[in-house]
Amino acid sequence: MLSQKTKDTLLGPLNANNPVVVQILGICSALAVTVQLKPALVMGIAVTIIVAMSNVIVSLIRNTIPMRVRIIVQLVVVAALVTLVSEVLKAFAYDVAMQLSVYLGLIITNCILMGRLEAFAMTNKPWDSFLDGLGNGLGYAIILVIVALIRELFGAGQLLGIQIIPESWYAANGGWYENCGMMLMPAMALILVGCVIWAHRAYNDKEGK
């Protein structure tokens, strides 16, 4: 259905060329919003939409942008899209928008966006750029979800706010289990992403041999 090139554009960023763990882009928000699964999911979706849309827009106007001011033009396109998304979130999912706080606005300065716009959208056709944006957004979302899953499950015993670890296991109710409070600390996000990079590289090195 898809040609090999489009397939690579779309699926490459999910694993072999992942924007977070391989290219180390967009780390700031990836670390900050992963205490719980829900904001991480919303953030992943928001970034995917914005990368795909801004890629299409910049790709459409790429021949009319003067080289010297291209960064400012790109920033304005992205900032307009982020404003739209944040207004929509404030209207329909107010509590999540508050949880994301400044990190929603910081999508503007997310390096994935600038990286994809510079490296791909400026030189490719709109449809390819759209797929590339979609792939990179999803690659980012996957890492966010993995880290948030671990942190919320072990840090609070919940997923999406629903209790997963049975209440009767807890020490307070006569069981043996205790939540790992360390998972909720900011430092743990860094260490977990470090471990994800470790696992990803170890796996891919083995595949390569």
Partner: peptide, 18 residues
């Protein structure tokens, strides 16, 4: 080896943050 470079840097920053 798989931890070299960025992996270990992340963990270092995590410990510094702590």
């Amino acid at each position: 080896k798989p931890l070299q470079g960025l992996g270990i840097t992340f963990i270092t920053v995590g410990l510094m943050a702590m």
